[in-house]
Design a protein around this nucleic acid. Structure first.
Length: 981
DNA sequence: ACCGCCGGGTGCC
DNA sequence: ACCGCCGGGTGCC
């Protein structure tokens, strides 16, 4: 590790630096494993595996083997061990060759991979074809090191230096028993194929299945298909793809591994339906429909329980939770989480049963603890009805004493004859696992609870435990007893952190479901490790966008599904990722087979028997051009001229990048002006000064570190303003260190924005000499200025007297007024990137007597849920308008009550607008959706629209992400276009 | 005999 | 390992 970092700091400073930083920002332990660009084949060598005598590991003809360094081997510090799939040792590389290999491997000059071409029955040694893969720049070093020890790399190229990576060579060495001569794919073909990876996965997946009786929502045809498919996947006992049975062994045809144990069937997969197709409902149906042996989950009918404790108990339990969370954790209360969907539902008995922690503790916990809990938690009642207690006892004894197979069968047949009916206790199947663990982002937690409530019959009892909040019940026994345990990725990884174990990791789950599974992406992140080490019989990934950036993202998913042998990164890299990256059509084909076997994906436009899967109402987009008033135009042109001058200067000096934050600030100001002049600086005077509003712009220093006239506190203030502007600009800035979206953003004295952990790591590793990765200015930890968060300032309160309208505001208001006249029941989303603009809009809305609510990033979970709930409610007097911040809320956000969307200002990223619109144009929308985009004529907004269009085309053409530098460069081009420079 | 040759012991790193 | 290598025994034929 140390050595590697040193070697990186040689050549290209910026590039290697940021790479080195990225590595240390991540979990450094495993980071050495995967250098993605090790894709050049340097050549091959026929080596020898010796010492077979001493080890038991066997190998097949043509089998891929791992080469593992053994730096602590007492006989030779250069030792290189040869191992098979199971990591069991076959032998060692002969020491003469091991010496240069050790050097190459230790310095990360190349990755070495082996295939045994023949001689697998040899008693003492066997040949091994070694191939060396790495970055072009290390090729000579590798070759020289081998030469120094008397070895010559075979290059196999027929001509041209690119020949080394030809597929011929590739195949020969990846799987020498195969005689595939593939034609390399062009990047274009590769891109197309990759895009189609998740398309056309429909064949054989059209069988439908009815949900279990406990599900009260009728499934749509495509959901029944998904259910049938999921049930089939869960109950299958097929070999995973590319495995065949041969001579009593199991052979993987890609790697030639032959193992005696049958590789586990992949019981689960990826449900990758577009959002809005009802993945949550389908999953709930799955939980209830496919318990053990393909039978529905045995559930109690509530009437069947003893009348008094039963119903009262249920209600009380719900209120327990409310109290419990509100009082104890302070993090998430029932109002935030189990949002009653509408007034009508509230009158019914809630079907969602959330068993309070104490239910189990009373049985298994030491008395003392139970007592305390009872006091603090449930003052009014006698804890719980005898019914629940008995059930728990039943469970405890079942767990303790083992389950009699017959008894559970009896229960099942009983159920069969009576339908959903009395079920005195919840049986555990012979294999014990009962509970489904659902892990989701916090933003959709409440949605899950909602949906459990909505879709399960009111007379059916399903125990859903929300594993969240400080006082969550961590008892393994208790968790294992639930039907469903719901938690978030954060809770999971927090529990797991460091300890490598946690309550959730001790439970043997029947099923683990990763909702929005694509969020688990970086395999080095704690949450990935936490997710991968869960124990479950069945595993599911729900994701509308299974591939975020590239092939690499897929590994996490495959690995989670335990798809042998690709759950081990080496085999994934060798067999799939690298061949595909190099344009090998066989590799791509293999990947397609792999994905096809485990994925179901339908888009909103997928056809089913000639009709689209979901009949969504129509969506129409209108662009409404807004003309500025003369006064506005005059002012706008002034601001624009000053901005152009400043940016033009940066272009002349070639300092656009170093002053990027300033440039963004100028652009933001222009965009803000298009919405409303008050957005720019007022009433906060310092903003005006800092960003050179009006004539003062010309005094803007070239960069902030030269702003010598300022006191430290002034500088600080400026930086806070700057970071606020950058972050609220809607440009989705990324951290130049981790290349991801900013988290815990901080700004340096040289006015560049990074994730706090990333830049701190840079400073830490470079000690006193730390430099800003973007401009090389000196940086220090104590000089980093943190983003204070969006101050939820209410402009309306401050500016009531000073209120004035703007052309755009007028345009919106006249739309809203007309709409109200035509149909007062229609609800609208009013979307802006500027929360302050939303605040300004509150004034005329109030004036005109509109009832509105608001959702923006600064709001707590609690107030968000309230706002959504109120807006979705169709009752008289409920808000008809929601002021929505463009980036607020996750993809799960459901605002189907709205059928009109007013996009007040264009976004940099057109996808953000689409996503926003999709919050109401989704399953459950009954009306046609009309979208109005306001664009100010002859302004920066019009130019933005042009850029949006170009971006869309680019996205359609390009494969894979650009690197940070390219992205910055294209930003610069955008700036030129925007400012008409 | 400071060699060659023979044959037994031995065998990954 | 039906090899190579090592090192001890041995020494005209």
């Amino acid at each position: 590790m140390e050595f590697r970092r040193l070697s990186f700091l040689g050549a290209d400073q910026t590039e290697t630096l940021s790479r080195a930083m990225r590595r240390s920002a991540e979990d450094s332990a495993a980071a050495a494993e995967d250098e993605p660009e090790d894709n050049v084949l340097f050549g091959t060598i026929r080596g020898r595996v010796v010492g077979l005598r001493h080890y038991t590991g066997g190998v097949n003809q043509g089998e891929m083997v791992s080469l593992v360094r053994e730096p602590h081997n007492p006989y030779d510090k250069n030792a290189v061990m040869v191992a098979n799939v199971h990591r069991s040792q076959i032998g060692h590389i002969r020491r003469q060759l091991a010496a240069p290999m050790a050097y190459i491997m230790d310095n990360n000059l190349a990755k070495v991979e082996g295939v045994v071409p023949f001689g697998v029955k040899n008693a003492f040694n066997m040949p091994v074809n070694l191939s060396f893969w790495g970055k072009e720049e290390n090729k000579t070093a590798v070759s020289n090191e081998l030469k120094r020890h008397g070895f010559q790399l075979d290059l196999e190229s027929k001509g041209g230096s690119q020949g080394v990576t030809s597929n011929r060579t590739l195949h020969q060495w990846l799987a020498p028993t195969k005689k595939v001569m593939a034609v390399p794919l062009t990047p274009e073909q590769l891109k197309n194929a990759f895009d189609k990876l998740f398309d056309d996965l429909m064949e054989d997946k059209t069988r439908e299945m009815e949900a279990g009786k406990a599900v009260c929502t009728p499934l749509l045809p495509h959901q029944k298909q998904a259910l049938a498919w999921m049930v089939t996947r869960e109950n299958n006992s097929d070999l995973p793809p590319f495995w065949v049975e041969k001579n009593g062994l199991y052979l993987n045809v890609l790697t030639n591994f032959a193992v005696p144990e049958r590789p586990d069937s992949v019981r689960g997969g990826i449900l990758a339906d577009d959002m809005g197709l009802g993945k949550t409902l389908t999953t709930i149906a799955l939980i209830l429909t496919n318990f053990h042996n393909g039978k529905p989950m045995p559930l109690e009918k509530m009437e069947s329980t003893p009348p008094v404790p039963g119903s009262a108990g249920t209600k009380r339990k719900n209120s327990d939770l409310k109290e419990n969370n509100g009082k104890r954790s302070g993090e998430l209360t029932l109002e935030e989480v189990a949002t009653p969907s509408c007034s009508k539902r509230q009158q019914e008995d809630p079907v969602l049963i959330i068993i309070d922690s104490d239910d189990a503790e009373e049985v298994v916990a030491p008395k003392k603890k139970a007592k305390t809990k009872a006091k603090s938690n449930c003052p009014s009642s006698t804890k719980k009805g005898p019914f629940m207690l008995m059930e728990d006892m039943d469970f405890a004894s079942a767990l303790g004493g083992g389950v009699v197979e017959g008894s559970s069968h009896k229960k099942k047949s009983q159920k069969k004859s009576q339908g959903v009916s009395k079920m005195p206790s919840k049986p555990i199947d012979s294999n014990g696992a009962r509970a489904t663990l659902v892990i989701c982002p916090l933003s959709v937690l409440s949605n899950w609870l909602d949906q459990f409530e909505q879709h399960i019959r009111a007379d059916v009892e399903l125990s859903v435990y929300l594993y969240y909040g400080a006082e969550r019940n961590r008892q393994v026994k208790f968790l294992a007893q639930q039907d469903v345990v719901l938690t978030t990725y954060n809770v999971l990884s927090a529990d797991y952190g460091g300890k490598k174990c946690s309550p959730l990791h001790e439970v043997k789950w029947l099923r683990v479901v990763l909702d929005e599974g694509h969020v688990v992406r970086n395999p080095n992140a704690m949450q990935s490790k936490a997710v991968l080490s869960l124990t479950a019989e069945r595993r599911w990934i729900l994701s509308g966008t299974p591939i975020q950036n590239s092939l690499k993202d897929l590994w996490m998913l495959i690995s989670f599904l335990k798809l042998k042998p690709f759950d081990v990164k080496e085999w994934w890299n060798r067999v799939i990722e690298r061949p595909v990256t190099l344009g090998d059509s066989k590799g791509l084909n293999d990947l397609q087979i792999l994905i096809k076997g485990i994925t179901l994906r339908r888009t909103k436009t997928s056809k089913m028997a000639g009709r689209t899967v979901v009949q969504l109402p129509e969506k129409r987009v209108f662009v409404q051009k807004v003309t500025m008033s003369e006064e506005e135009r005059l002012e706008y042109e002034t601001v624009k001229r000053e901005g152009r001058d400043a940016i033009g200067r940066y272009f002349d000096e070639g300092t656009v990048l170093t002053n990027y934050a300033d440039v963004l600030a100028i652009l933001v100001r222009l965009r803000q002006f298009c919405c409303h002049p008050h957005l720019l600086g007022a009433p906060a005077v310092h903003r005006v000064r800092q960003f050179g509003y009006g004539h003062q712009l010309s005094h803007l220093p070239p960069s902030l570190e030269n702003a010598d006239a300022s006191t430290p506190s002034e500088l600080r203030e400026r930086l806070i303003n700057k970071i606020t502007l950058v972050l609220s600009s809607g440009s989705d800035e990324e951290c130049a260190v981790c290349l991801d979206s900013l988290r815990q953003p901080v700004i340096t004295y040289c006015a560049h924005v990074y994730c706090k952990p990333c830049i701190c790591e840079v400073i830490r590793s470079e000690k006193d000499n730390a430099k800003c990765p973007l401009c090389r200015a000196q940086i220090r930890t104590q000089e980093l200025v943190e983003y204070p968060g969006e101050d939820a300032e209410s402009a309306s309160a401050d500016d009531k007297d000073a209120w004035k309208s703007s052309s755009k505001v007028e345009a919106l208001m006249s739309n809203l007024l007309r709409l109200r006249q035509e149909d007062p029941s229609i609800k609208s989303l009013v979307v802006s990137q500027f929360t302050k603009f939303l605040s300004l809009l509150e004034v005329p809305l109030r004036e005109q007597g509109f009832s509105f609510t608001r959702l923006d990033g600064s709001m707590s979970q609690r107030s968000r849920a309230k706002a959504i709930q109120a807006f979705q409610d169709s009752a008289q007097g409920c808000p008809t308008i929601m002021l929505l911040s463009l980036k607020a809320g996750g993809v799960g956000l459901n605002l189907t009550a709205a059928s009109r969307v007013f996009l007040m200002d264009p976004a940099w990223n057109p996808a953000a607008e689409d996503q926003c619109v999709d919050r109401c144009h989704r399953l459950g929308q009954k009306k046609d959706v009309v979208i109005t985009k306001f664009i100010v004529k002859d302004s920066v907004e019009e130019n933005m629209v042009k850029i949006q269009r170009r971006k869309k085309e680019l996205v359609e053409k390009a494969f894979g992400g650009k690197n940070a530098q390219d992205r910055k460069q294209s930003r610069i081009e955008e700036i030129r276009a925007l400012m008409e420079l």
